[in-house]
Design a protein around this nucleic acid. Sequence first.
DNA 1: CAGTGGTCTAGACCACTCG
DNA 2: GAGTGGTCTAGACCACTGG
Lengths: 226, 226
Amino acid sequence: MPGWEEIRDSVRERIRVREWAPGALIPGEERLAADYGVARATVNRAIRALAEAGLVERRKRAGTRVAELPTRRARLEIPVIRREVEGQGRIYAFRLLSARPGGLPAEVAARLDLPAGHAALAIETLHLADGRPHAHEARWLNPAAVPPLPDFARISVNEWLVANVPVVSGEVVFLAEAALPAAAAALAIAPGAPVLVTERTTAGPDGPITFVRLSHVPGHRVNLRL
Amino acid sequence: MPGWEEIRDSVRERIRVREWAPGALIPGEERLAADYGVARATVNRAIRALAEAGLVERRKRAGTRVAELPTRRARLEIPVIRREVEGQGRIYAFRLLSARPGGLPAEVAARLDLPAGHAALAIETLHLADGRPHAHEARWLNPAAVPPLPDFARISVNEWLVANVPVVSGEVVFLAEAALPAAAAALAIAPGAPVLVTERTTAGPDGPITFVRLSHVPGHRVNLRL
DNA sequence: CAGTGGTCTAGACCACTCG
DNA sequence: GAGTGGTCTAGACCACTGG
């Protein structure tokens, strides 16, 4: 008797061989359950997996259709930087470059959905791998949305936040730019060298938490699994 | 009576307030089901969602533990480039720059897990948005793993593949680099300008399919939802 | 080897939405 | 209005694995 994974694979195969063409309706759950000789819940689990993968689209009453142009989805795992570095077999360290209260610059405020000038803590950190620069971090933290702050010379902001502040939503952006002066200096690279920048915005139950801009050392690659 | 989403939220909240600290075991499904007054399957659905989000870790016999350093996960939706451009309200077009058979270069072969020199089709495409360069695509295609090829002057390789070749696994990499001569020329930008590069490797049931290298026009941003 | 999560069943009710 | 997927139940068996 087939399990839900076998049914998922079978349906995927039947789509692949065009038994059901892109855009076509596939049989309903009840019908498939009868065909495969399983309970409807089992078919539901299988088709739901295909829907999450983007291969089919489901709508009540309208049924399940094979996607015309399946949108592929890749998953990015965002580890704490220490874990990322240690996972490569290198020694992690960081240096707190600066931490001072101040108002949010307009462009950061916009990203956080807060008014410009809103009270914030601006933090600059250099992450090191085997003693060499790994990434430069410029961060703005909304003190109103987090517990009392620890000593960031001892634990990195990054790690403290992950362990202490729940995130309910957020955004990640990748872009390439010519290294800004601050990042270039910290990373000890030529100003204007191409750097990969990761911008992350996160919000929690008590409002926007932080905006962080990571400039990676040249040659850095970010991997996602399909 | 609570549904699985409410139970998921409730458990998430109880973790947030440290009722169960990082690393601690949370009660078993049977226990939670009794507490919430629902069937075990409902609790299973809820906790499974938290496990997929990386907030807890489940192991048979060992039970469910709160993750120490939750690895956040972001999802990247990879649309066909035409859709991406049209989604911004711009007009999509593409130009097939070249397509010729040849052997795989060593570095591409390595990424595809094929021997160097393996028969392949090398394709160069320029994607346009509103008539202006949007991205430069250098692709190697493994003819052994795909159906007979259409006329790539009429449909972009990208789109044809998505609609006609199922993908079983793959990888996406982001990096920043100084624009290579070919890409710079096609995109009409200064050679050496910082460009965001996306490298994608995909494999199907019949082996490695394609390796594609997309150089985006400066200023391009890739967005992921957390 | 015993307890956990993983899965399955047969049935049921419901919300949604298309026609 | 009717058919679809979404969800839930109460029970069951099983694979895995930690003690």
